[in-house]
Design a protein around this nucleic acid. Structure first.
Lengths: 194, 194
DNA sequence: AAATAAGGTTGAACTAGTTCAAGTTTACTT
DNA sequence: AAGTAAACTTGAACTAGTTCAACCTTATTT
């Protein structure tokens, strides 16, 4: 399976496209190979691309004034990642997006994406569906964060995303879940005195 | 200004539409007047509409097993509100959406919205932009919640949404910000011992 | 194979925010 | 205008989760 075939499948799972249309769509993406610890987005620079993960794992995070890192998103195979706000508004990023493992991405830039949307209403539909699901996903995370304890948030995460939970460093997962790495360690090892 | 003119302005601020197109778009919305404390969405029922607020204030919230209410969203004039997840996937809602004041809404249902998107690619573009901005908004909230203390979250909220802060009950704002109403009261009245 | 860096664990002291309970103020109803 | 319900305040006791510091384990580099 070539890099592009993964994205074609992703597309055809979401909208009804002929092979020709699908090929036209994906031909606007470029293959990008990156090494572990390499950055594809950094604060103060505009996020140039929307990135589809063909292989590997990445992490988006912010660093606050005290130097603490907070994980905003993970992405593994068949996920998208960028600094969302920076990309859609084409404004300076606030996040780092870094490879947790060597990775293969398919990248599209903002201008090319705009042309693509204009070229075929189905492509616009694809981005609309993607954005809607992203919004729904983020809202579910907001709800979980508001309604659950640290332990419950961890439980829900491993149930929903077992493949991610086992693949990312614990400090990154802890900060995604809004707790310290020490506290997550205690949850995992059941060292919370009852 | 009629109810529809508010929505037409909202549209034309986001996409380039002729008057005729704008009128076609808004003619698919129905005016709905509701009284304070009335619900437009309830758990276990599918959210039937996307709601544009012409006048009034509403609140979306979930209730957890212990009976605690957590505010997920507010909406005042020129905002949209629904149970987002329920509406886009047409699945049973988990939220209540209730009027905090008598309100005037413009409602579109899921089927009509789908037809509208098919009728004109510009309409699809409008919903794509709306979804993207919604996702970006939600992500900013996730970041604030992960990176800020209760006091900072309150400060940011009153700076960003002063009109909402002064219009909604404090217990509703507290639960939106992820804290108790008692704690928000202490923040506001500077009763935190330093 | 050794050296170093990165990631994870443990316990003790601490604190930001919660819970509870009682009282006060403000807004609706009759 | 009085009565009731809803919303807000205050303080004291508590707890979920943090901080800090030291140690242990696993990866990566030389």
């Amino acid at each position: 399976m070539t890099e592009y075939e993964f994205l074609i499948k992703h597309l055809q799972d979401r909208i009804d496209l002929s092979d020709e249309e699908a090929n036209q769509f994906v031909s606007n993406f470029k293959i990008k190979k990156i090494k572990k610890r390499q950055f594809i987005v950094q604060p103060d620079f505009v996020a140039q691309h929307r990135n589809y993960v063909v292989e590997g794992a990445l992490r988006a995070y912010v660093v606050n004034d005290e130097g603490q890192e907070h994980t905003i998103a993970f992405a593994i195979e068949d996920w998208w990642i960028s600094d969302y706000n920076s990309y859609i508004y084409q404004q300076p990023a606030t996040m780092f997006v870094m490879a947790l493992e060597d990775a293969v991405l398919l990248q599209i830039d903002f201008e090319t994406e705009a042309k693509l949307k204009g070229a075929n209403p189905k492509f616009e539909t694809f981005f609309r569906i993607t954005a809607e699901r992203t919004a729904a996903f983020f809202q579910r995370r907001i709800i979980t964060n508001l309604t659950s304890s640290a332990e419950e948030r961890y439980e829900k995460f491993i149930n929903q995303f077992p493949l991610i939970a086992n693949r990312v460093p614990q400090y990154a997962l802890a900060s995604y879940l809004g707790m310290t790495t020490e506290f997550l360690s205690k949850i995992k090892n059941n060292k919370l005195k009852k």
